[in-house]
Design a protein around this nucleic acid. Sequence first.
DNA 1: CTGAAAGCGCTTACAG
DNA 2: CTGAAAGCGCTTACAG
Lengths: 345, 345
Amino acid sequence: MRGIARLARELGVSTATVSRALNGNPNVNAETRQKVLETAQRLGYAANQAARSLAQGVTHCVGLMIELDQESTASTDYFFMGVVEGMQAVLAAHGLDLLVLPCAKSQDNFTFLQRFVSRGAVDGMILAETRRIDPRIDLLQESGIPFVTLGRSDSGSGYSWIDLDFEGVMATAVDRLVKQGHRRIAVTVPSSDANYGAIFAQAYRDNLVRHGLEVDETLMFPTRRREDDGDSVVDGLLDRPAPATAIILFYEVTAIGIYRRLAERGLKPGRDLSVIGFRGEDSVRFLTPQVTCFHLSLQDLGMAAARAMLAQIPMTASDVSPGVVQCRVPLSLVPGESDGPVSRR
Amino acid sequence: MRGIARLARELGVSTATVSRALNGNPNVNAETRQKVLETAQRLGYAANQAARSLAQGVTHCVGLMIELDQESTASTDYFFMGVVEGMQAVLAAHGLDLLVLPCAKSQDNFTFLQRFVSRGAVDGMILAETRRIDPRIDLLQESGIPFVTLGRSDSGSGYSWIDLDFEGVMATAVDRLVKQGHRRIAVTVPSSDANYGAIFAQAYRDNLVRHGLEVDETLMFPTRRREDDGDSVVDGLLDRPAPATAIILFYEVTAIGIYRRLAERGLKPGRDLSVIGFRGEDSVRFLTPQVTCFHLSLQDLGMAAARAMLAQIPMTASDVSPGVVQCRVPLSLVPGESDGPVSRR
DNA sequence: CTGAAAGCGCTTACAG
DNA sequence: CTGAAAGCGCTTACAG
């Protein structure tokens, strides 16, 4: 005999009573509960998860699906750990475990998700890096499982998502540069198929138009999250009839290559080219002049996503403000010395 | 009616037959199997995980426990994503899901682990960042659950672990520096309570002794994984009666601060101070002169750990070479220009 | 406050 | 090759 039955026999009570005592059911004699708890502790007993889930119909687990990519392993993660930390803290406080589910980029992410969902392995699912068209969202909506996405998508509707306020960031950055006299503003956009690339690019176009500036698609440079890509950007930016005088970066590490190439060309960031980074990253803190960028708390982002999740899960819905969350998390400008008035040289 | 019962009724067969067909049991008529598979596919049916686990007594899940730290979120992850990628690939190929289980640094990691283990939530557990004394290892050994650790420990014995060959790296680095004429060699050691810090430090001492060099504990600088710490290291290194002429870094990013501070003092890495990094990281690729360092495939490390795990799990044990794995993964030297003969200035 | 019993949705000897 | 049935280890109305 094992599990709860063993514990019950040991105590001379029924398994029902043991179960109630362990689960905090009020209909248990205080003394009985005490004994059960003690014995469970002593024997290192904890209810078998599978049996529990089967009986209750819930798992007390929330999945976070992330995609692994050889090329970006050393990058996206940089972003995720902070987010995961925030999520885990909030979920744990409400009795939920966070299971991070890594999906290899090489395998079909739809099938991967489907497996976990259709097997009822989690009570809710959080999706990261949504695509512009993302069948996973349709899958989740059809399945009826609670879910939240990190990032918007054109797929599905009426579901909860948390995203960064790319529009706000871009508006602030462009306003700032225009005020400094810049008229030829370039941008780097992520060469990834995640939706944020498209959103960032569109926000760029919209904000130029708002200021009556011409949108030149050749001033939009696709970059990966690695500093190398900055070098060629500088050349592409300057070696043209009407050189750009400012650039807004999606990946801040790009600034490293940009600074280096500028130096090689005898130019200075902030004076000869204004640079504004999107999300301030530790890895470029050391650059001089300091990169003007935006600050974001990854933990807060994760916490917001977790709360949106709690609102969808029946058991925890009453713990938080109800309803669908569709929220763009604002970022605040951190002025550096990498931007300034247009050089008059 | 739902689940397998619904499928069975739909098909006019017993649930037993459906189960067999779905699980690849050979004792099923080919035609029957075909029909079951088709219908399951059409209805989007997949066996409920909890029920399956309960009946089979296994979960087909392996947990990877990682600890989250506000301070290191932007750093350790840097390491983990590649490792996770390798692990996931190997486990998936053997029908196992990898569940990354993030534990907040603020909560007790022993209790955290215990919960997952005692509830039978996973078939095996992989531990990261072992401590010199690590009660988690005793817990796992007592529980009898298959497990593997990333890192050695003084706790427990006879269990499978994968670790980096700190000793080999240190031997190579010291040999190289000594050959270049260095006699005063410093080192940075991680200011973390993970066991690798102690191992790295001891390897440093052992290798100096091997070369008949004096061990000066004040030449061992505790650093975090952030470039800032490099600046003070330079000062501590040089501002002394007998300045060090070389330094071996645990965190390669420390090189950024070191380079910066050297420049401020009018000194050059490679000429005035030889620098050798431990694990080559993308974030310092751009430094000039290129940092001499060691190369490690994170994916390979993850794959090795996963294979060690497979060997412990009954269901997959026959797929790999059997037995306990205790393996130090070697790293290969990647010569740069940051080290060289002792300056004669 | 407690226990006997049904039920959660699967898998798997057992019998045919 | 197939089905009836027991069993996995819990939880939870139901009755007392």
